[in-house]
Every structure is written in C-alpha cells, then in structure tokens.
C-alpha cells in the first residue's frame, strides 16, 4: 500500500534487489546501510595519505546537478568523486537552463547524451530525485543530495557514521533532535537511519509549530520542553533554523526560539555527561546553538564534515560498482 517497500515501489533497487540509486534512507535495507558505513571506514584513512586518491571511478563522469545553492554539500560530493578519480561536472542550475524553462528531465537527457554515468542531484522539490531515478532506470546512478523537505540520505549516513564512531553503538544511544523538524529533510532522514540501526530512543524537540505531534507516527517521542527532552540524551542534534520560518508566522522571533530551545552550555548540561553535539551546518550561532557549545569539547561538528567525505566516497563507489553502467 505505501509504495515505499523494497521491490516495485522502491526505485532505489533494481530487479535483482541491488542498490542502484540512493534516494532516501526510508526503504533502505539494514544490510545496505551497514555496508555503506563499513566501506566509509575504509575511505576515512585515505584522507591521511600523501596522495588522497584511489583509481576506483577512473573514467567515470559524475554530474553535480544542483538546483539549490549549497556550497558544503556540493563541494564534499565533488571532492568525494574526485578522490575516487571520477570526472565531475558541476552544474548550478540557477545559472543554467532551468532558469530558461527547461525541465529537469530535459536537462538530464541532454547530459545523458554526453555519456555521463551518474547524477548527484539537489532540488527544492520533494521527489525530484525519485523522478530522475525512475526516468533513468539503470542507465545512470542517482544520488539524492536533498529534495525539498523530503530526504537527504548522505547527511543521515554521515550523522549515524559519526554517532557510531564517536559515541558508540547506535543501539545504545538516546538521541534528541531539536529545532525545525517540520521543514527538515535532514531530520527525516536521520530518524529513519537511527530507526533502521535500532536506536532505542529518538526524541524530537521544538515548538508545536515546527514539531507537530504527528511526528509520533515516525516512531519518535515528541517534546516541546528541553527539560523533558534532554535528560539522559547521549547525542544532541541541533538543526539549522531558517529565517523564513518567522515570515510564515511559525515563530515570534529567533531570540524567542533561542530563549526556549537554543542549545546553551546550561541546557547541554541536562543531557547525559559527555553527550555529543551534532549539527548539519551551516550554523546559526546564537539561534539554535550557542557558540560556547559549537566550539566546546562535546561538539563533533567538524568531524561530521570529515566523515561526510568518506561516506560520500563510499556511496559513490558502491553505486558505481553495481554492474550495468558500462556495457
């Protein structure tokens, strides 16, 4: 019924059940998720070498197709692809045909005519990566680098990779995600990844206008007061709060949001001793998180960035390694 199961309704997998595209964490098998994380461990060491490159994707061409600005995600994907020796074409759609009215699929068909092997796509509308994957089938791989408010699977992978590496087994963590859950593809993806890996307690925290009670349907505990949500948390994940949320009357002001929910040293002290602090970036210092916490000893925000590179290398090499792109 849901269409999000493994098989027909899940365009991430081919008919043989092999992962061909990475579109969302939801619907990903645990074994595939673990393989990505384990492969990422191997890539982590490569950044320490004199030559930070492997020949894995030599001769392949990947397209960074970004319909939304994002320096960070675009550059980590670019670096990941280049470290795997792939050629990378960066297309910022804001300066390209998209503004001339060309459709997403026409843009992609034009690039396919140049024999590219895969697309890393970011798009402001939910489902854009699914649309692309359905259109391309096994002709090229698709990695969703963020589609509207729907999914951002590589972010979730690097987040659980960071938790697993620095906090310990996911099965033993109490994770509290705070901020604008409603508009966050990062939060949705992370919740699914944590659930698949058996996280026993996921809490979400924020005002009802940004964290509606319906979030309980995702299997998380919904909280609107940090004093309920933080005690015992071993991982605290602060989400970026966007200014548009005030214009849509979901918040009276950023100051008031900080007053109620901002992650300050005092609030962090409510969590378990030594709890890790994560943030997907870019950070609004003094809004969802205070500078003292960002730069404090419990913050692993920069480790997330480093891990993001290894995780994206793992994803690209695993997807590109599934046969069929060549002959």
């Amino acid at each position: 019924m849901t269409g999000l199961r493994f098989g027909d309704g899940n365009p991430q997998y081919d008919r043989q059940g092999r992962l061909r595209h990475l579109l969302s964490i939801e619907g990903l098998r645990e074994i595939d998720l673990l393989q990505i994380l384990d492969t990422a461990e191997s890539f982590l060491g490569i950044a320490q070498r004199a030559i930070k490159k492997t020949p894995t994707l030599r001769g392949r061409t990947l397209v960074n197709l970004f319909f939304e600005n994002s320096t960070r995600t675009r550059s980590t994907f670019e670096l990941a692809a280049k470290r795997l020796s792939a050629d990378v074409l960066n297309i910022a759609a804001s300066q390209s045909s998209a503004t001339k009215g060309e459709s997403l699929l026409d843009t992609v068909d034009n690039l396919m005519a140049m024999q590219v092997d895969g697309f890393i796509v970011r798009h402001p509308e939910a489902g854009a990566a699914h649309l692309l994957a359905r259109h391309l089938g096994d002709r090229a791989l698709v990695v969703n680098a963020g589609d509207g408010q729907h999914a951002h699977p590589t972010q979730a992978l690097l987040d659980v990779f960071t938790i697993r590496r620095l906090a310990g087994p996911v099965e033993q963590q109490v994770v509290c995600i705070l901020g604008d859950l409603l508009h966050s593809r990062v939060a949705r993806a992370l919740i699914h990844a944590l659930s698949i890996l058996g996280c026993p307690e996921i809490r979400v925290l924020g005002p009802r206008t940004l964290v509606p009670p319906e979030f309980a349907s995702l299997g998380v505990q919904v909280h609107h007061d940090p004093r309920d949500a933080l005690p015992g948390a071993s991982v605290v994940y602060a989400l970026r709060l966007q200014r548009e949320r005030m214009e849509s009357h979901r918040l009276p002001s950023l100051d008031e949001f900080h007053r109620r929910f901002g992650l300050t040293p005092e609030r962090l002290a409510l969590a378990a001793p030594g709890a890790l602090v994560l943030h997907p970036g870019p950070i609004n210092r003094g809004v969802e998180i205070g500078s003292a916490v960002v730069d404090g000893p419990q913050s692993v925000i920069l480790a997330q960035v480093e891990h993001g590179l290894a995780v994206r290398m793992a994803v690209l090499s695993l997807l590109a390694g599934v046969g069929g792109h060549e002959d």
Binding site: T2, L4, E26, A126, G127, D147, G148, Q149, H150, A151, L182, R185, R188, P212, E214, F215, S217, L218
Partner: peptide, 10 residues
C-alpha cells in the same frame, strides 16, 4: 495532511 505527507516532506 497526515503521516504520509510528513514522511514525504510534502
């Protein structure tokens, strides 16, 4: 509006 719209981010 419901659990599915929440999951799909629509």
């Amino acid at each position: 509006e419901g659990p599915l719209s929440l999951r799909l981010g629509l």
